[in-house]
Amino acid sequence: DIEITTNGEEDAKRVIKELQKRNLEYHIEVHGNQWVIKVR
């Protein structure tokens, strides 16, 4: 598993777009303004 910590929603959406392009499965956890994306 890979864990990507982003700085808020805009940053997270940019990362998610890339993950979707590669058809990767991911899970999002929001901790305040930090979005942690866990990639399987």
Rank of each mutant, 00 (worst) to 15 (best):
Ile28Phe: 04
Glu25Trp: 11
Asn7Cys: 13
Ile37Ala: 00
Lys38Pro: 00
Val15Cys: 08
Thr6Glu: 02
Glu10Ile: 08
Asn23Cys: 05
His31Tyr: 10
Arg14Met: 11
Lys17Ser: 11
Thr6Asp: 01
Asp1Thr: 14
Glu9Tyr: 14
Trp35Lys: 02
Glu25Thr: 13
Leu19Lys: 01
His27Gly: 06
His27Val: 14
Lys38Gln: 05
Arg40His: 15
Glu18Gly: 04
Val15Ser: 01
Ile4Arg: 02
Ile2Leu: 13
His27Trp: 14
Asn7Trp: 15
Ala12Pro: 01
Val15Leu: 09
Glu29Tyr: 09
Arg40Gln: 11
Trp35Tyr: 08
Ile16Glu: 04
Val15Arg: 02
Glu29Arg: 05
Asn23Gly: 15
Gln34Met: 14
Tyr26Ser: 01
Asp11Glu: 15
His27Gln: 12
Glu10Lys: 09
Leu24Asp: 02
Arg22Lys: 12
Lys13Tyr: 13
Val15His: 03
Gln34Val: 14
His27Ser: 15
Gly8Ala: 07
Arg22Pro: 02
Val30His: 09
Arg40Pro: 09
Leu24Trp: 09
Ile2Thr: 08
Lys17Ile: 13
Ile16Tyr: 02
Lys13Asn: 11
Lys13Gly: 06
Val30Glu: 04
Asn23Lys: 12
Ile2Arg: 08
Leu19Ile: 05
Glu25Lys: 14
Glu9Asp: 05
Gly32Met: 04
Lys17Glu: 13
Leu24Asn: 02
Glu29Leu: 06
Gly8Cys: 09
Ile28Asn: 00
Tyr26Gln: 00
Asp11Phe: 08
Gly8Met: 06
Lys21Gly: 07
Val39Gln: 01
Ile28Met: 05
Glu25Gly: 08
Ile2Cys: 15
Gln34Lys: 14
Trp35Ser: 02
Ile37Gln: 00
Glu29Phe: 09
Lys38Ala: 05
Lys21Leu: 14
His27Ala: 10
Gly32Leu: 04
Gln34Arg: 13
Leu24Pro: 01
Gly8Asp: 14
Leu24Ser: 03
Val15Met: 06
Leu19Gln: 00
Thr5Ser: 07
Ile37Phe: 07
Asn23Gln: 10
Arg22Cys: 06
His31Trp: 09
Asn7Val: 10
Lys17Asp: 10
Glu10His: 07
Asp11Tyr: 09
Arg14Ser: 07
Asn23Pro: 02
Arg40Cys: 13
Trp35Thr: 04
Val39Thr: 03
His31Ser: 09
Lys38Asn: 04
Glu25Ala: 12
Val15Tyr: 07
Arg14Gly: 05
Ile16Thr: 04
Ile37Lys: 00
Lys13Val: 09
Arg40Ala: 11
Ile4Leu: 06
Val36Glu: 01
Trp35Pro: 01
Gly8Val: 07
Gln20Arg: 10
Tyr26Ala: 03
Gly8Leu: 06
Leu19Pro: 00
His31Lys: 12
Glu29Asp: 04
Glu25Gln: 13
Leu19Phe: 03
Ile37Glu: 00
Glu3Met: 14
Asp1Arg: 10
Tyr26Met: 03
Ala12Val: 06
Val15Ile: 15
Ile4Ser: 01
Tyr26Glu: 00
Ala12Asn: 02
Lys17Pro: 01
Tyr26His: 03
Lys38His: 12
Val30Gly: 02
Ile2Gly: 04
Lys17Trp: 11
Lys17Asn: 09
His31Ile: 14
Asp1Lys: 08
Glu18Cys: 13
Lys21Arg: 13
His31Ala: 06
Glu29Met: 08
Val15Asp: 00
Tyr26Asp: 00
Ile16Arg: 01
Asn7Leu: 13
Glu3Gly: 03
Glu18Gln: 08
Thr6Met: 11
Leu19Gly: 00
Lys13Phe: 12
Leu24Tyr: 07
Arg22Ile: 07
His27Leu: 11
Val36Pro: 00
Asp1Pro: 11
Lys13Leu: 14
Leu19Asn: 00
Ile16Lys: 01
Glu18His: 07
Asn7Met: 13
Glu3Ala: 10
Ala12Met: 12
Asn23Thr: 03
Glu29Asn: 04
Trp35Asp: 00
Gln34Leu: 14
Asp1Gly: 12
Asp11Pro: 04
Gln34Ile: 15
Asp1Glu: 13
His31Gln: 11
Tyr26Leu: 04
Thr5His: 14
Gln34Asn: 10
Glu9Asn: 04
Gln20Val: 12
Gln20Glu: 15
Gly8His: 09
Lys21Gln: 10
Lys13Trp: 14
Ile37Thr: 00
Ile16Trp: 02
Glu10Gln: 09
Glu29Gly: 02
Arg22Asp: 06
Thr5Val: 15
Ile37Asp: 00
Val15Gly: 01
Glu3Pro: 03
Glu10Val: 08
Glu18Tyr: 13
Gly32Ser: 04
Gly32Gln: 05
Glu3Ser: 13
Asp11Thr: 09
Glu18Phe: 12
Leu24Gln: 05
Ile28Ala: 03
Arg40Trp: 12
Ala12Lys: 03
Lys21His: 09
Thr5Pro: 05
Arg14Lys: 13
Val30Tyr: 09
Thr5Gln: 09
Glu25His: 13
Lys17Phe: 11
Tyr26Trp: 08
Glu18Leu: 10
Asn33Phe: 08
Gly32His: 05
Ile37Trp: 00
Asn33Trp: 05
Val30Thr: 06
Glu10Asn: 07
Glu9Trp: 15
Ala12Ser: 04
Leu24Gly: 02
Gly32Ala: 05
Val36Phe: 05
Gly8Lys: 09
Glu3Phe: 15
Ile16Val: 08
Ile16Pro: 00
Gly32Tyr: 03
Thr5Trp: 15
Glu10Tyr: 08
Glu10Trp: 09
Asn33Ala: 09
Val36Ile: 14
Ile4Asp: 01
Arg40Tyr: 14
Val39His: 02
Ile37Val: 04
Leu24Thr: 04
Asp11Ile: 08
Val15Asn: 01
Gln20Met: 10
Lys38Arg: 13
Glu25Tyr: 11
